[in-house]
Nucleic acid binder design. Structure first.
Lengths: 331, 331
DNA sequence: TTGTACGCGTTATCAA
DNA sequence: TTGATAACGCGTACAA
């Protein structure tokens, strides 16, 4: 594009740069006719203001940094989609960074956010609930409003927004108990803060609803095959199991396949529950009962809260959004 | 963070701002001792340069704009992941925007890219191969290197990078013909430029390998259920069909379920082929033969080409990357 | 080897 | 109602 600054426009319109600026920003005290004239030239030249320069003087980049371990995990992709769209409505752009799971790298990415002068940051996933992140934020983003999605850290500028998965899982156990299940297992792939809460809910609910039945907890590694194997092994070693909760829908879907291959009837012989209420749950055969952790509400609230903070309004530091069970064929 | 400019650092180090700048950018002609001293203060203050200001003077934002219709389509998410990681290696950040499919909105987003002064743009998906986009790019990004992933537009600053899906589909037909399939159908959900090429390949291959068998082409709408219904109807109306190619793996997976529900043996009675070689293909039962359009290579090449263009090197305007069939149980 | 002065494109203050 | 001028934080000729 041919260089196109407010000075170029000013020259063509025979006014000063400040008048052009006033027109662009719709400020008062501009004569109607000059405004119309400038507006016309602006349109003719397809003038677009330089947000970089604007940001420099306004001390606001109108950009929000989004940190995520790996954007390919579908659950997080959805969150990013909701967040990006909502931020766009408010005139903000998203700087999206895949940080991986290494703390050193994550710290580097937080530094990048400060370098890019983002107006705020959203860390997506409970994995950011660590001491390393807290320290990095204190050093590099000490005055930048920061939200952790499904996690919390205690710092003046950090806001936590968490899905109440602990109670959610408790309710899953209660549901299974009501369906006369007595021997429940929980299959988990990673010990994230979020998953640890799910396990906590699982164990306490067993005590409450199933008279302290011994919890069977299986830890798989992160490949999907592994959830398949884990399910096979589980049913061999604990044939009494009549209900399985998986830490995520994807694991459950793979588990359902394993059970089907073993000719185990779902839900007659074994009931299955997943978490996330994702598309996987709707598409599996049989369809999967799943704990909806309200990702959409979580995302929307994150943005709303952030906008409020940026407007200087008071916002609660640690909010929780209730989960809900969506019942389908697998229970 | 307490304000922290090169001037603040300069004061603390008893040197001028330009010396600090020289140290930061590792320029020559700085006395070793002063350099060490400045470096120490820099570290103590956790100084981070302001990329915004830097961008203003260097006329380079070190940001690349990524346009995508909807980041939630898994195939594109993968592309974004590869691209983001590769760009990060080169010191670039990604501005990711969901444009939707409306041309007016898409134009607005292109305008935003120019406003943010991105150094280059990557448009992900053949849907950007439209006259409206071409015009918008010419107006707002006329000097910004722009790559279309899986598409092409003829303009001085636009580079096309396309998967050879036309030939890929031709090879799929040949494979099915070699497996003695005679009556092939193609199920497609949207007439994107990419899908139109697949159809073209399908029809020409029928002429070549199957003596001009009448092509059965079914257009579904974009919901997944619809692919299920379409498959049922297809098999009722054309019971002779013994091979189906779906425009995308997801459609094929849903189709496989429909066939299974109809007790149609795969691949004995009907062979099935998908496109994208995504995780869906690996996870379906039976596993799905799929055309790999080399998304990873495409993404990597896009970034490499872009970096070359930014370095002022010559880059071919329209490149093609060959597809490959990955055979699995469904054929 | 180091410092001064200017410009990048914009907004804001103040004077005209 | 308008225009000149000074920031914003940085890089870089040019001068010292």
């Amino acid at each position: 594009m041919q260089k196109n600054t407010i000075y170029d426009i000013a020259k063509k319109a025979n006014v000063s740069a400040s008048t052009v600026s006033r027109v662009i920003n719709n400020k008062p005290n501009v004569k109607k006719t000059t405004k119309a004239h400038v507006l016309k030239i602006l349109a003719e030249c397809h003038y677009v203001p330089d947000e970089t320069a604007r940001g420099l003087v306004m001390q606001s980049s109108k950009m929000i940094g989004l940190l995520i371990a790996d954007i390919r995990t579908t659950h997080h992709t959805d969150a990013i989609y909701y967040i990006e769209r909502e931020l766009a409505k408010n005139g903000y752009c998203c700087l999206i960074l895949n940080t991986g799971t290494d703390e050193k790298e994550q710290t580097q990415y937080i530094k990048m956010l400060s370098q890019r002068k983002v107006d705020a940051a959203i860390l997506i996933g409970s994995i950011y609930q660590t001491a390393a992140i807290k320290k990095a934020v204190q050093i590099y983003l000490s005055t930048t409003p920061t939200i952790i999605l499904n996690g919390y850290l205690d710092a003046p500028n950090i806001y936590g927004l968490i899905a109440d998965e602990e109670n959610g899982v408790r309710n899953c156990v209660r549901l299974l108990a009501e369906k006369n299940r007595r021997y429940l297992a929980f299959i988990v792939d990673r010990y994230t803060p979020s998953n640890l809460l799910k396990l906590k809910g699982f164990e306490s609910a067993l005590a409450q609803y199933l008279g302290g039945a011994r919890p069977v907890i299986v830890k798989t590694d992160e490949s999907r095959r592994s959830a398949y194997e884990a399910t096979l092994t589980l049913m061999k070693e604990h044939p009494e199991v009549d209900g399985i909760i998986y830490a995520e829908d994807i694991l459950a879907v793979v588990g359902i396949r394993a059970l089907t291959d073993m000719k185990i009837a779902i839900p007659e012989r074994v009931a299955v529950v997943g978490i996330n209420n994702s598309l996987h749950a709707e598409n599996s055969i049989p369809t999967l009962t799943s704990l909806d952790n309200m990702l959409y509400d979580l995302s929307l609230t994150a943005v709303r809260n952030l906008m409020d903070v940026l407007r200087g309004q008071y916002v609660n530091k640690k909010m929780m959004i209730c989960s809900e069970i969506v019942e389908r064929e697998s229970t």
